[in-house]
Simulated scan of single mutants.
Amino acid sequence: MYLFLGNLSFMDICYTSASIPTLLVNLLSSQKTIVFSGCAVQMYLSLAMGSTECVLLAVMAYDCYVAICNPLRYPIVMNRQVSVQMATVSWVTGSLTALLETGLSLRTPLCGNLIDHFTCEILAVLKLACTSSLLMDTIVLVVSVLLLPIPMLFICISYIFILSTILRISSAEGRNKAFSTCGAHLTVVSLYYGAALSMYLKPSSSGSQEIDKIISLLYGVLTPMLNPIIYSLRNKEVKDAVKKVLGKISVC
């Protein structure tokens, strides 16, 4: 579990570092520009980190499933080698799909250089395309389906088995411990996939660009910021510290 959490933390750092510094500079600067190479790097890193997180969250759901449904076999099924291999598959999948999307999108002829977005987000860049590319649209759709609904379906199936196992636990302490194990992950999944699905799998004609900007900030800034908080609240010492701070605030 901590191996996957370490990967998730590193991924969130890379994700926010790829776009937020440029965003903050543009907010403070009167000249809001970015060089083509910088735009390409920013697009690739954002896509790679986002795609990797989609796969990694599905891997973490399987980890929770084994821990709760087969606890005695957990050290054997999810040994160190298997965990490293699953994390590596997540990184490779995200990196390769991002390379494919970025390479094709940057080869698309653009009629203009003004991106109506906070960052070099691929959908915002493709709106500048001179002509509609069936190949590019198909690849974006296929990659989005492979990295969003399919992992989400896998996560849902895992949690169906997890929930059925938890409901069969006789002791309240055992149920609470099981819910604590998967509760943080389920919260992160709901936040991330909810925003990503509404962004990449909605009709291109629906909604406005302003709504897309807000959604991109939700899964690009808010979710990585909340992840450490959500997972830290599983720790008893952190919970006690939060209760103590809230108690002092209420007294004041």
Rank of each mutant, 00 (worst) to 15 (best):
K127M: 06
A129Y: 06
C130Q: 11
C130G: 09
C130M: 08
T131G: 07
S132F: 07
S132G: 10
S132T: 11
S133I: 14
S133Q: 08
S133R: 07
L134H: 07
L134V: 10
L135M: 08
I139Q: 07
V140K: 08
L141M: 12
L141F: 14
V142C: 12
V142K: 04
S144E: 14
S144R: 11
L147N: 03
L147W: 01
L148G: 03
L148V: 10
P149G: 10
P149L: 09
I150T: 06
I150V: 13
P151Y: 11
L153D: 08
L153M: 13
F154N: 12
F154E: 13
F154K: 06
I155L: 01
I155S: 00
C156V: 12
C156F: 14
C156T: 13
I157E: 04
I157T: 15
I157L: 15
I157D: 09
S158W: 09
Y159I: 01
Y159T: 01
I160P: 02
I160E: 09
I160M: 06
L163C: 14
L163Y: 14
S164V: 07
S164Q: 15
S164C: 15
S164T: 13
T165A: 15
T165F: 04
T165L: 01
T165R: 15
T165P: 02
I166E: 03
I166M: 03
R168E: 11
R168G: 05
I169C: 08
S171Q: 01
S171L: 02
A172I: 09
A172N: 11
A172L: 12
E173I: 09
E173R: 11
G174A: 05
R175W: 04
R175S: 03
N176G: 13
N176Y: 09
K177T: 07
K177A: 14
A178T: 00
A178S: 01
A178M: 00
F179L: 09
F179Q: 00
F179R: 03
F179D: 01
S180Q: 15
S180R: 14
S180Y: 13
C182K: 00
C182D: 00
A184R: 03
H185I: 00
H185T: 00
H185Q: 02
L186H: 02
L191G: 12
L191I: 05
L191M: 13
Y193A: 04
Y193T: 02
G194F: 11
G194T: 05
A195Y: 11
S198A: 07
M199F: 13
M199S: 07
Y200W: 12
Y200F: 12
Y200K: 03
L201N: 08
P203E: 14
P203S: 14
S204P: 04
S204M: 13
S205K: 12
S205L: 15
S205W: 13
S206T: 12
S206C: 13
G207S: 11
S208Y: 04
Q209K: 13
Q209D: 12
